[in-house]
């Protein structure tokens, strides 16, 4: 399981938001393998093969990371900083998830190397659309360097 190919890594502490995001992918016919992690600490362990994910082949990189900014303990910006500071993980596209486009953290996220961001809209249909569009973009059009 640990070494199965993961194409989409969703880091989101809100279970409801995660469920909606996963549903949006499926609705948009993005059936790529996806793993959902509930906090920043787990995400870092996953990406760097430590702790719970000790022994995972870190060369098996997700094609895209969807990262919620507002998480307890290790927040999204911290995760982003570590991803972009590491030679192995820094090329993975990171799409930041936020509740509104007014978030001052969006600017920080860009300066830390985020590739894009999604404002989680109130309307599910809209949410499904942006998630699908972005999923397609990063999974299909944008082939990350191997």
């Amino acid at each position: 399981m640990e070494n199965a190919t993961v194409e989409i890594l969703l880091i989101e502490d809100n279970m409801n938001d995660a469920e909606l995001a996963i549903r949006a992918f499926r609705k948009g016919n993005i059936n790529n393998s996806l793993i959902h992690l509930k906090n920043g600490a787990d995400a870092l362990e996953f990406l760097f093969g430590t702790g719970k994910f000790e022994g995972r082949d870190i060369k098996n990189k997700p094609k895209v990371i969807l990262l919620d900014l507002k998480m307890p303990k290790v927040d999204g910006l911290e995760v982003l900083t570590k991803i972009k500071a590491n030679e192995v993980t820094k090329a993975i596209p990171v799409v930041v998830l936020t509740s509104s486009n007014e978030h001052p953290d969006i600017e920080r996220a860009y300066s830390l190397g985020a590739n894009s961001y999604i404002v989680k809209p109130v309307e599910f249909d809209e949410f499904a659309k942006v998630v699908t569009d972005l999923g397609f973009y990063w999974l299909l059009k944008n082939q990350p360097p191997v």
Partner: peptide
Amino acid sequence: SYSVSHDLRTPLRVINGYANM
């Protein structure tokens, strides 16, 4: 008012999303 409106969006999104499901 900014943070209230901002934080209100999250549960609202969930209500709307689950009603949709």
